[in-house]
Simulated assay, not measured.
Amino acid sequence: MRASRRAPLSVSYAPTAEAMEHFALRREHILSIVTFNPLPTSEARPEAPRGIAEIPLPLSGPDNCEIWSTDQPVVSADFFDITYRRSPDFIFGSITQAIACPAGQNGDHGPSSLQVRTEEAYRQIFTLLEDIEHHRLLRVWNWIPDINSNTRELEHYRQFNIGRQNAFIAHNRLSDTGSIPAATAVGTRAEALIVHFLAGRCIPVALENPRQVEAYRYPEKYGPRSPTFSRGGWIDLGPQNILFISGTASIVGHSTMHAGDAAAQTRESIHNIAAIVAEANRVARSDVYDLNLLSYRVYFRNKQDLAKIRAELDRLIQPFATTLYLQADICRADLLVEIEATAGLLSRDDGHR
């Protein structure tokens, strides 16, 4: 496994078996190894070491992992249910919350288990960040059990949004919309809510898409509480500028476009990503960001749509970086694909697709 050139924050890719064989977490500059395709929760297996952030989604293609690193020494620690690794400037953490009785009962009163556990997860994250003075959430990934299912007459994604926003309000994190992080939320078949997060001392600039209504201002038709995330985030680290683009789908204004058409939804998603890239270039006062210079994670709902989605992306963009394809349910039942992206993180040792 090749060592990446160190930057304030960087991501490289390696075969998972190779990374585990060399146990890259022994290196003092590794913040996290993000792996895919973990064994089902019902199978007995050893607990993952601190710093292994498991994504319970099937990966289409080679079994690669992401290795997040920094140019500073890193230490491991726990905080209640959170496991994390931190440097003086960054922290990469993971929290898993078991969801009791995921099927629920429609006649039950009070908040659902998913809502309660979501709020608890975010409260723990915010308390940790306040305690160690890494005050800013930079990027969040949420893995939600059966995201489109309904219990207690409310979709799981909407239950999740209530819990998430309750925690933001309780910790006074909505007073400045510029501090709302970029995020992804997709569905899994796991029996627990899993949240991965990157935080740091740097101050991100929240980016919005002029083609879309801000997610945190969605009308009530999308649930009692709006989704709490920005469309993207731009971070100036001096020698390095980083762009995070949230999970992006075929939505214009606040409405789903091209229902049932995976190819058209892929095109619309890329149009939205292009709009965020333009906003990032405006904020950065340069044309440093380009669709072909991004690293992508593509979440697709149905296996039969993957070839169409790949074909559209091959036609629209030619990224020099790795593109990961993961099968997942998307936050709206009529969405077939969601795409997230980053720029400014790729290790120069990487460049394969």
Rank of each mutant, 00 (worst) to 15 (best):
M1Q: 05
M1L: 08
A3T: 08
P8D: 13
L9R: 15
A14H: 11
M20P: 00
H22T: 07
H22E: 15
L25S: 06
L25M: 13
R26Y: 07
L31Y: 10
L31I: 13
F36M: 13
L39Y: 04
L39T: 03
S42I: 15
S42N: 12
R45Q: 11
G51H: 09
I55K: 08
P56W: 12
L57D: 01
G61K: 08
E66L: 14
W68E: 09
T70N: 12
T70Y: 10
P73K: 14
A77G: 06
F80H: 08
I82F: 10
S87G: 12
S87P: 05
G93L: 12
Q97K: 15
A98G: 02
A98W: 02
I99Q: 07
G104R: 10
G110Q: 14
S112A: 12
S113V: 03
Q115K: 13
R117L: 08
E120I: 06
I125P: 01
T127G: 04
E130G: 04
D131A: 14
D131G: 03
I132R: 12
E133L: 12
H134P: 03
R136H: 15
L137E: 04
W143P: 00
I147D: 04
I147Q: 10
N150F: 07
E155S: 09
Q159W: 05
N161M: 10
Q165D: 06
A167C: 03
R173M: 05
S175A: 11
D176Y: 01
T177C: 04
T177S: 09
G178A: 12
S179N: 12
G187H: 07
L193E: 06
V195A: 01
R201S: 05
C202H: 13
E208D: 14
E214Y: 03
A215S: 14
K221D: 02
Y222G: 00
P227K: 14
T228I: 15
R231Q: 14
I235P: 00
D236E: 06
D236F: 02
Q240D: 03
Q240W: 04
L243M: 08
S246Y: 06
G247W: 02
T256W: 00
H258G: 00
A264N: 04
A264D: 03
E268Y: 00
A280C: 09
N281S: 06
N281R: 11
N281I: 02
R282T: 10
A284H: 09
D290R: 15
L294H: 02
S295W: 03
R301G: 02
R301V: 14
R310A: 08
F320Q: 15
T323F: 01
L324G: 01
Y325L: 10
L326V: 04
Q327T: 11
R332E: 12
V337L: 09
E338S: 12
E340Y: 00
E340F: 00
T342P: 00
T342F: 11
S347W: 04
D349I: 13
D349K: 15
R353F: 09
